[in-house]
Write a protein that binds this DNA or RNA. Structure first.
Lengths: 256, 256
DNA sequence: CGTAAATTTGATTACCTTCAATCGTCGTGG
DNA sequence: CCACGACGATTGAAGGTAATCAAATTTACG
């Protein structure tokens, strides 16, 4: 039910987002921030919309790079998988995030929709031309790449040195910080992704993720009215568990 | 003894590297690649040299960002540490690598020399001006940030989803690939960093790292004439273990 | 409502960590 | 020159924790 509601609301957002860039939901968060209103049509001219259904693939690792994308609604997972089926989700993309920061010729990662999502697609070569013409655009993408790098570093710390409970606490706080920047629902946090996705992001098994949810619940730090709806009851203690050193950094990075 | 020799040879490199940019060891690998010979003096004008002794700190997380650096010789470790002493080394920097890709105001990571190292320091504001004047410079830094992001993603996969033996195999191959880019010494690989550093990079304990070395040795994939000198005997099988073409039988073989 | 999928919970196992001891190298001082 | 101590690396034994295997429960969806 929670998922169905998410699906529907995403679809309504799609129409708005694709109407004109001026009125886009992420006009002031995405790469277009770099373009003044008067030049915005230059981006608009080379854009084509993309709609994805839940779990639909946008890119497969190994595909040649032809376009770059800006997520306007929904959520994507970026991941690498090994031949034997193991999978590492390196990041979840939220509205305003940019996709195509990383590779030159071939995609080193796959991208799939977590929930119904809409994106703006830009042909790479035209984007290159636009970057030559508008240095602020290149600077903006550079800045976004740097933010992604900070986030990846945080993830490395989490994967390498945090215990399962700490990982989950940190993950929830990070998600909260990133989503509540956009229209927020109090302290309620929608988990768009499955336990499997969370496990593949945190380097755990789904059983361990589930047990950690149970422990956080038992400690009174969160409530879990539905499997995909978290209420954060005690952000401070959650941050303590998460290891600190992360919290100020995370908030700042989510802002950019 | 290996460490002492590394120290000495680094010092001789220092003098050469700092003489002039034209004759720099990393002239054709570092950020300066973006500058034509005729404009190289513009970089040179704002550069000041930095020398570091083994384990000397260059930056502490939390420090304000004032300068950016290009490593000309030696090796640096970039890391984050937690209040309780846990540490995650996110990357080892090699000659030609750039430092300062990530943060805007304050450093989110610390940087220390692994062995004696030399760097070029550039004041950030002057570098910004230079980037405005030479778009190719900004593009170069953007490209390097993207490469760093790819590397971070690889690290995430390794930390989250690889078994200890796979991690170490992958680490050795990665190190080999990065050092043999520069003048290489056959299949012999100098490990400049300690077991503790390796453990803190791979998300393991030093004991586990040591045991994995022993297992790789026992399987005849490497030799270990000294603790800090690795001979790769069977790169192919090492690559299999590292994650490409991993099958359960490989794991079982490795376990026995 | 019924079936399938996802999540949670339980029991057991395997493996890494922890704790502890030994070995080897290097540097210092007797 | 050798003894000693410090440090890093390796090896060994014991314990804990997350993975694995398995089942029950809840949720999603036709």
């Amino acid at each position: 039910m929670g998922a169905a509601a998410g699906f529907r609301s995403s679809l309504t957002l799609v129409r708005k987002a694709c109407a004109t860039c001026r009125e886009c939901d992420v006009r002031h968060q995405a790469l277009c921030t770099a373009m003044a209103d008067e030049h915005l049509h230059r981006l608009e001219d080379i854009t084509s919309p993309v709609l994805l259904q839940p779990n639909q693939a946008l890119l497969r690792q190994g595909d040649p790079c032809r376009k770059v994308y800006s997520l306007t609604s929904g959520m994507l997972r970026l991941f690498t998988d090994l031949p034997d089926g193991r999978r590492q989700i390196t990041d979840f993309l939220m509205p305003g995030d940019y996709l195509g920061l990383v590779d030159d010729d071939f995609h080193s990662q796959s991208a799939e929709a977590v929930v119904a999502s809409s994106l703006c697609a830009f042909p790479i070569n035209q984007m290159e031309l636009l970057m030559d013409e508008f240095p602020s655009l290149r600077e903006r993408l550079h800045r976004m790449a740097r933010a992604a790098l900070r986030q990846a570093h945080d993830s490395q710390l989490m994967l390498g040195r945090l215990a399962p409970l700490e990982k989950l606490a940190g993950f929830l706080l990070m998600l909260d910080a990133r989503t509540n920047h956009h229209p927020h629902h109090g302290r309620r946090l929608q988990l768009a992704m499955s336990r499997t996705d969370i496990a593949d992001h945190l380097g755990l098994t789904i059983e361990t993720v589930s047990r950690c949810f149970t422990r956080l619940k038992a400690q009174g730090l969160i409530r879990l009215p539905e499997a995909h709806l978290v209420e954060i009851l005690h952000e401070g203690r959650l941050a303590e568990i998460a290891g600190i050193g992360l919290s100020p950094e995370h908030l700042r990075l989510a802002a950019s």
